[in-house]
Design a protein around this nucleic acid. Structure first.
Length: 890
RNA sequence: GCCGGGAUGGCGGAAUUGGUAGACGCACGGGACUCAAAAUCCCGCGCCAGCAAUGGUGUGGGGGUUCGAUUCCCCCUCCCGGCACCA
C-alpha cells in the first residue's frame, strides 16, 4: 500500500467505486428493517456552507452506521428550489431565477458528491420542477374542496415607491431595503390553510413523539398556545344598530376590574369611529405604518388614543371607553382586549401612561398592593375583592360564576383560544408554485381542473423589483374560464415555499411516479426514522409538515399520523457579520473572509493577549471585535460589526467548504466538523483545529502502512482463544480497546459524534503504545508467543477502529479496509458487521478507588477486583492523607 | 417584549444515574531528529502559593439543597435561535 496518505486519490477512487457499485441505491425490501434517514434539503443558494456540511455529515454518519447495523437505509437528497434569493439574484445579475437556481443546484450537487455522502441520487427532486409542484397544486385543490383552504384578507408590507410587496426580511427599520421608503401595512385578499382545525391534534400528538427533543415539543406546544378562557361581549349602539364588541380573556375573574377596552387599529369599529374623528384617523394611519412583525409590535412603545366612544360593561352596564391601541394584535382572538390595569402588566402600563383608573379586584395574598408601580404578584390568582356578588370566590369559582352569568345574558361563554393562526400561503411573488385558480368575471374564483394541471410557471422571467412579474405576462395571465369558457385571468400569486417543504419527504419514496402524488412505496419507507436539520426549523417547517401529513392522511393519501419518528435538531453554525450602511440607507454585507481585523492600539498592547478578549467582550456594541478595527481588505476602509449570527446568504457570512476540501480532502472536512462540537450545540465558526483532524487521519494511515503485515496477521493455527492466559500488558491493552469501543457504541446511540471521533483518536493512541517487547516474557518460549497475540490484537483493534470511524470518514476507512485485507475477513466495510464489545475483556485485575473525605478528594488507591468492603475500608483508613483529614472530625 | 436554548482552561470541547472537573484535540512552551526549515516523535500545560511534596481555589454572577453540585432548585447577566413573507 501507499506509505503516504493521499486523500484526493483515495476519495476519488472510493467515490468512483460507490457509483459503479450503486452502493447507495435504496430498494424496497419487505421483511428487512428499514431506516429512512433524512436531512433537511438545502435551499440552492449558490454554494454549500459549513452548516450544510455539519447537517449532511450527521445524516451520513447515521445512515452509514445503520447500514452496518443491518438496516435497509434510504438517504435521499433534493432541492428546496423556490424562494426569494433567486429573485434578488435576478435583480442583481439580470439572470432568470430558474437559470440561477439550476446552476446553483449543479454546483452544489457536485460539492455534495465530493463530500462522499451516501445518497441515493436516483430519487433527487427539485421543488421548482412542474412534476413536483403539480402535486402542491393538486393537494391545494383537494383542500379547497374540503374547505381547508379559504380566502380572506391578510396584512403585508407595502413599499409605496417600488409598488411592491416586501418580505419581512426586506423591511429594515421600517423602511424598504431597496428604496428606503417608509413601509405601509396593506390588507389584501389571500388564501389560507386551516391549520387551526388541527390545533388540538397537533398539540396532543406531541406526546406520541418520544424521539423528538423536549425543547422542540415545548416550543411547538407554546406556539399552538392553547388557552382556556371566556369570550365576552361589550354591548353598544352605533348608527342606530345594537352591536357588540367581542374580546377574549383568560382572566374573567377580573371582569369587575375593567376600566377600558382597547382595540386594534385594523378593527372594523376603529375604522368606523375614525370616519368621524380626524385625529383618530391619523392615529389609525400611524399604526398602519411600520413592520408587521410580531417582534417589532411587541417591543415598540405602547401607544393608544381614546375614541370618545363607550361600550357597556356586560354585567354592570357601566360605561367603558374604547381606546385604539397599537399593541393590540388584530390577528389574535377578536382584535380587542378588556383593559384590567389592576392585574395585567401591559394594561397597567397603559393606564399609568394615559391616567386611566386602576381598580384592584383580586386579593394578592397579603402582599402589598399599590397603584404606584407594577409588581409581578399583581398578576397572581387570588380571591375576588371589590367585585360585588363575586367577592371571596377563588379563581376557578369566579370564572365559572362570571361565565355562567354572561351566558345567561347571551354576552359570553367559556371558550378555548389558540395562539396558532391559520397559515396564509399567498405570496405576491414570481418564483414559487402558481396557485391553481382562475378569476372569471362571471364565475368568480374557479379552480383549475385536475386535467389542466400543472399550471406551469414560465421560467424566463427576470424580476426587476417592482411588483410581481407574473402579472405582467399576458401569456400567463390570460386564459379561458374552465367553467364558462369566457376569457379570464389566472391568479398570479404563488405559494409560500413552506408548502413545498411540507411533504417532500413523502415524495422521495416515489419520486419517479408521474401519475400520482404518492404510491405504495410510501407505506414502506415512511415515517422518516431519523430527521436531521437546524433548530431554526423547530416551529414553522416542522409544524407545517405535521399538518400536511395529517391532511394527506385525512384525504386517504397516506396511512400516517406523524411524518418524523425521531428528530435531531442541529445547532446553528455561526459566523461574524460585517456590514456598511450606504448613503441611501441600504446595507451591504461583507463576508468575514473579505474583512481584516487589526488589533486596536493603546491599552490592549499593555495588558496582554488574555485580556484582549475580555476587553472586546465589554465593548459598547456588544459586538466581537469592537476594540479591534475591522476594515475591508479591498479598500482598507472600516466596516461595522453586526456581531455573530447564522451563516446565511442574506448576511453574506457563509463559509464555503470547498477550499477545505481542496486542501485537506473530504474526510478531514467531515471529521473536523463532527469533532468540533456535539450536533445539537450552537457552533461559532473557526477553522483552528482543521490541522489536527488532518494530522489524525495522516497518523492513522501511517500507522497502518507501517504495521501492514502485523495487522494482516491472522494465522488461525496460533489464534488466541483464551485471552485470560495471555500477557497481562496485552490483556490490559485489549481491555482498553474494548472500553473505547463501548464508549463509541454509547456515543453512536446518543448521536454524539465528537466523542466518537475522540474514541477513534484514543484507540490509535492506544495502538501506538502497545507493548514493544521483542523478547518473550518466558525465556523458554519463542518470541512468537508474545508477538502472535500482539499481532492478533492489532488486527482486531484496527478492524474495530476502521469500522467505528467509517461512518464519519468513509473514504480513508474504505481504502485501508481494502488494503489491509479486512474485506476477506468481514466483507465490504459498508455492510460489515458492527464490532461488538467483548465483556470479558473489560474485567480488570485491579480497580482504582478514589478517597473522599466530606466530599473532598484526599487520595486514591488500587485494590484487587475482588476485594471486599471491610478490606477496602481498612485500606482507606490507613491512607495518611485520609487520616490527616478525618483527625479533626468528631 | 414573548417562547426555547446556551455559558466549563488561551481556544473547541469531555465528564453516561449527584461522586477524581478539564478526556480528546487545537494553540502555546521545552526537548529530540535536521546544516537548517518543514514534517514527525517525547515532555509540560486551569489559576494562586511552593524547588518540591503539597495546600488553596476553580465549571457566567448571586443564593439554596446535599457528606459531596458542571449536574438539582431559586434569582440575575450576557449570548444564540424562533416570533407566522429568509429558508
Amino acid at each position: 500500500m501507499q506509505n503516504k496518505y493521499n486523500p484526493h486519490a483515495i476519495e476519488r477512487e472510493s467515490q468512483q467505486y460507490w457509483i459503479e457499485q450503486r452502493s447507495f441505491r435504496a430498494v424496497e425490501t419487505p421483511g428487512k428493517p428499514k431506516y429512512y434517514c433524512l436531512s433537511m434539503f438545502p435551499y440552492p443558494s449558490g454554494k454549500l456552507h459549513m452548516g450544510h456540511v455539519r447537517n449532511y455529515t450527521i445524516g451520513d454518519a447515521l445512515s452509514r452506521y445503520h447500514r452496518m447495523r443491518g438496516f435497509n437505509v434510504l438517504q435521499p437528497m433534493g432541492w428546496d428550489a423556490f424562494g426569494l434569493p433567486a429573485e434578488n439574484a435576478a435583480m442583481a445579475n439580470r439572470v432568470p431565477p430558474a437559470q440561477w437556481t439550476y446552476d446553483n443546484i449543479a454546483y452544489m450537487k457536485k460539492q455534495l458528491v465530493s463530500l462522499g455522502f451516501a445518497i441515493d441520487w436516483e430519487r433527487e427532486l427539485a421543488t421548482c420542477k412542474p412534476d413536483y409542484y403539480r402535486w402542491n397544486q393538486g393537494l391545494f385543490l383537494r383542500m379547497l374542496e374540503k374547505g381547508l383552504v379559504y380566502k380572506k384578507t391578510g396584512t403585508d408590507n407595502w413599499d409605496p415607491v417600488d409598488q411592491t410587496v416586501l418580505a419581512n426580511e426586506q423591511v429594515i427599520d421600517g423602511r424598504g431595503w431597496r428604496t428606503g421608503a417608509l413601509i405601509e401595512k396593506r390588507e389584501i385578499p389571500m388564501y389560507y390553510m386551516a391549520i387551526t382545525r388541527y390545533a388540538d391534534e397537533l398539540l396532543a400528538a406531541l406526546d406520541t413523539l418520544p424521539g423528538w427533543p423536549e425543547r422542540v415539543k415545548t416550543m411547538q406546544a407554546n406556539w399552538i398556545g392553547k388557552s382556556t378562557g371566556v369570550r365576552l361581549a361589550f354591548p353598544y349602539a352605533l348608527d342606530g344598530r345594537d352591536d357588540r364588541l367581542w374580546a377574549f380573556t383568560t382572566r374573567a375573574d377580573t371582569l369587575m376590574g375593567v376600566t377600558f377596552c382597547a382595540i386594534a387599529a385594523e378593527h372594523p369599529l376603529a375604522t368606523r369611529l375614525a370616519r368621524d374623528n380626524p385625529q383618530l384617523a391619523a392615529f389609525v394611519d400611524e399604526c398602519q405604518r411600520g413592520s408587521v412583525m410580531e417582534a417589532d409590535l411587541a417591543t415598540m412603545e405602547k401607544k393608544g388614543m381614546p375614541t370618545g366612544f363607550f361600550v357597556a360593561h356586560p354585567l354592570t352596564r357601566e360605561r367603558i371607553e374604547v381606546w385604539v391601541g397599537n399593541y393590540v394584535l388584530w390577528g389574535y382572538g377578536d382584535g380587542a382586549v378588556m383593559g384590567v390595569p389592576g392585574h395585567d402588566e401591559r394594561d397597567f402600563e397603559f393606564a399609568k401612561k394615559y391616567r386611566l383608573a386602576i381598580k384592584p379586584v383580586v386579593d394578592v395574598k397579603a402582599k402589598p398592593y399599590s397603584t404606584d408601580a407594577w409588581q409581578p404578584w399583581y398578576a397572581e390568582h387570588g380571591a375576588c375583592v371589590n367585585s360585588g356578588q363575586y367577592d371571596g370566590l377563588a379563581y376557578d369559582a369566579a370564572v365559572n360564576a362570571i361565565a355562567a352569568d354572561l351566558a345567561a345574558k347571551g354576552l359570553g361563554e367559556k371558550q378555548i383560544m389558540w395562539r396558532l393562526r391559520d397559515w396564509g400561503i399567498s405570496r405576491q411573488r414570481y418564483w414559487g408554485t402558481p396557485i391553481p385558480l382562475v378569476h372569471c368575471a362571471a364565475c368568480g374564483d374557479v379552480p383549475v381542473p385536475d386535467a389542466q394541471l400543472p399550471v406551469v410557471l414560465p421560467e424566463d422571467c427576470v424580476p426587476d423589483g417592482s411588483g410581481n412579474p407574473l402579472a405582467k405576462r399576458a401569456d400567463f395571465v390570460n386564459c379561458t374560464c374552465p367553467k364558462c369558457g369566457q376569457p379570464a385571468q389566472r391568479e398570479t400569486d404563488t405559494m409560500d415555499t413552506f408548502v413545498d417543504s411540507s411533504w417532500y419527504y413523502t415524495r422521495y419514496a416515489c419520486a419517479d411516479q408521474n401519475n400520482a402524488m404518492v404510491d405504495k412505496r410510501v407505506a414502506y419507507w415512511l415515517p422518516v426514522d431519523q430527521y436531521i436539520g437546524g433548530i431554526e426549523h423547530a416551529i414553522l417547517h416542522l409544524l407545517y409538515s405535521r399538518f400536511w401529513t395529517k391532511v394527506m392522511r385525512d384525504l386517504g393519501l397516506v396511512k400516517l399520523d406523524e411524518p418524523f419518528s425521531n428528530l435531531l435538531t442541529q445547532g446553528m453554525v455561526l459566523n461574524k457579520i460585517y456590514f456598511r450602511k450606504n448613503n441611501d440607507g441600504r446595507i451591504t454585507y461583507y463576508n468575514p473572509t473579505e474583512v481584516a481585523i487589526t488589533p486596536g492600539t493603546g491599552s490592549v498592547g499593555t495588558v496582554g493577549p488574555s485580556v484582549t478578549v475580555a476587553l472586546t467582550g465589554v465593548s459598547t456594541t456588544g459586538a466581537v471585535g469592537a476594540v479591534a478595527a475591522s476594515t475591508l481588505k479591498t479598500d482598507g476602509q472600516p466596516v461595522e460589526s453586526g456581531g455573530i449570527g447564522t451563516m446565511s446568504k442574506s448576511k453574506n457570512n457563509g463559509v464555503d467548504p470547498q477550499s477545505l476540501i481542496e486542501e485537506y480532502g473530504a474526510d478531514t472536512a467531515r471529521l473536523f466538523m463532527m469533532f468540533a462540537s456535539p450536533p445539537e450545540q450552537t457552533l461559532e465558526w473557526s477553522d483552528s483545529g482543521v490541522e489536527g483532524a488532518h494530522r489524525f487521519l495522516r497518523r492513522l494511515w501511517d500507522y497502518c502502512a507501517r504495521n501492514e503485515s502485523a495487522i494482516r496477521f491472522r494465522d488461525s493455527s496460533v489464534r488466541v482463544n483464551d485471552w485470560a492466559k495471555e500477557d497481562g500488558r496485552l490483556r490490559a491493552s485489549r481491555g482498553e480497546m474494548h472500553k473505547i469501543l463501548q464508549q463509541a457504541n454509547f456515543d453512536y446511540a446518543r448521536m454524539q459524534f465528537n466523542t466518537v471521533a475522540s474514541a477513534g483518536m484514543k484507540m490509535l493512541n492506544a495502538l501506538e503504545k502497545l507493548p514493544v517487547d521483542t523478547t518473550p516474557l518466558n525465556a523458554n518460549l519463542p518470541l512468537q508467543s508474545f508477538l502472535n497475540p500482539k499481532f492478533q490484537l492489532m488486527n482486531e483493534s484496527v478492524g474495530i477502529l476502521l469500522r467505528i470511524l467509517s461512518p464519519i470518514v468513509p473514504h480513508i476507512t474504505h481504502a485501508l479496509w481494502k488494503e489491509l485485507g479486512f474485506e476477506t475477513q468481514y466483507g465490504e466495510i459498508l455492510t460489515a458487521e458492527w464490532p461488538e464489545v467483548d465483556q470479558a475483556a473489560l474485567i480488570q485485575d485491579e480497580i482504582e478507588l478514589v478517597l473522599q473525605v466530606n466530599g473532598k478528594l484526599r487520595g486514591n488507591m488500587r485494590v484487587a477486583k475482588d476485594a471486599d468492603r471491610a478490606e477496602i475500608e481498612q485500606l482507606a483508613m490507613q491512607n495518611a492523607n485520609v487520616q490527616k483529614h478525618i483527625g479533626g472530625q468528631p
